Simulated scan of single mutants.
Amino acid sequence: MARQRTPEGPPPAPAVQKLRIRYAKRGRLRFASTRDFSRALERALRRADVPMAFSAGFHPHPLISYANGAATGTASEAEYFEIRVTERVDPESVRAALDEALPDGIDVLEVVEASAGALADRLEASSWELVVREADPAQVEAAVAAYLALEVAETTRTFKTGPRTFDTRGAVLSMAVTGVDGEGCAILRMVVRHTTPAVRPDDILTALRAVTGFSPPVPPLVTRLAQGPLLDASAGVADPLAADKGAAGLG
Rank of each mutant, 00 (worst) to 15 (best):
R3M: 02
T6Q: 06
P14D: 07
L19K: 03
A24E: 10
L29I: 00
A32E: 04
S33F: 02
R35E: 12
F37D: 08
S38Y: 00
R39I: 10
A44T: 02
A48V: 08
P51C: 11
M52P: 00
S55H: 03
A67V: 15
A71E: 13
F81L: 15
F81K: 02
R84S: 14
V85E: 00
R88V: 08
R88S: 08
D99I: 02
A101Y: 05
P103I: 02
D107F: 03
V108D: 01
V108K: 00
L109H: 05
L109A: 08
V111L: 07
A118K: 12
E124Q: 15
E124N: 13
S126E: 14
E129N: 03
V132I: 15
R133I: 09
E134M: 14
E134T: 13
A135V: 12
A135R: 10
D136F: 11
A138V: 12
V144T: 03
A145W: 04
A146T: 00
L148H: 10
A149P: 13
A149H: 13
T156G: 04
K160V: 06
R164Y: 09
D167N: 09
T168R: 02
R169Q: 05
S174H: 05
E183Q: 14
A186S: 07
R193N: 06
H194I: 10
P197C: 12
R200N: 03
R200T: 11
D203W: 05
D203Y: 03
I204P: 00
L208H: 00
F214R: 02
P216L: 05
P219F: 04
P220Y: 01
V222P: 12
T223C: 13
R224S: 06
R224K: 11
L231K: 13
A233V: 15
A235D: 10
K245H: 10
A248V: 02
G249P: 06
L250V: 01
G251T: 11
